[in-house]
């Protein structure tokens, strides 16, 4: 098995695109999703091609966790790093995300309303719900350092397609 991919970026939103791009590429290593038609100038194939459901899930979840760290752990002030250890296998992806900011209390996350209608549309508090729902497993261990573990399996049918 190849060694993990490691990336360390300052814990501010300025560096979010670099981290997201790295995660998107790692997801594509697992999903074997094709890159975009390079003749299409409207889409950046590295950043925005997350159309494969596996890529969609991984990138969507990771974006929310990065946001959470930059906003809650580092309170938009930076001052620390976000360290990624990404382990792709033939049928799964594990992303470990470490930060040295304030611990986050997952227990304080308010669940989304069961019956969503026009009146109850939320304007916040959706990030953790998105990450948790998109992944097969997500754990958080308060630190220091704080550790998020994001795990996604590639469905068996998609493994077969990707390797064909």
């Amino acid at each position: 098995m190849a060694p993990p991919i490691r990336l360390s970026v300052p814990g501010t939103l300025l560096y979010r695109p670099i981290a997201v791009r790295t995660v998107a590429e790692a997801a594509r290593l697992v999903s074997c999703s094709p890159t975009n038609d390079i003749k299409d100038p409207t889409i950046d194939p590295l950043v925005h091609d997350v159309r494969h459901p596996f890529d969609t899930a991984v990138v969507s979840a990771f974006m929310e966790i990065f946001n959470n760290i930059a906003i809650h752990a580092y309170q938009r002030r930076g001052g620390g790093t976000i360290e990624l250890t990404i382990t792709p296998t033939s049928d799964s992806l594990l992303i470990e995300v470490k930060d040295s900011g304030r611990p986050f209390d997952l227990g304080n996350v308010v669940p989304l309303p069961a019956d969503l209608d026009e009146e109850s549309l939320p304007e916040g508090g959706m990030g953790i719900h998105i990450a948790k729902t998109m992944l097969d497993d997500m754990t958080y261990t308060p630190g220091p350092p704080n550790l998020w573990r994001l795990y996604k399996r590639l469905p068996a049918a998609q493994v077969a397609v990707g390797r064909s």
Binding site: V47, H48, E123
Partner: peptide, 22 residues
């Protein structure tokens, strides 16, 4: 149609617009 990626902050903005217009 040309939106490739959205996160919860983007969704929140659209919800704000939806509620404001309604």
């Amino acid at each position: 149609a040309m939106l490739d990626l959205i996160d919860s902050s983007g969704v929140a903005a659209l919800v704000k617009l939806y509620k404001g217009v309604r």
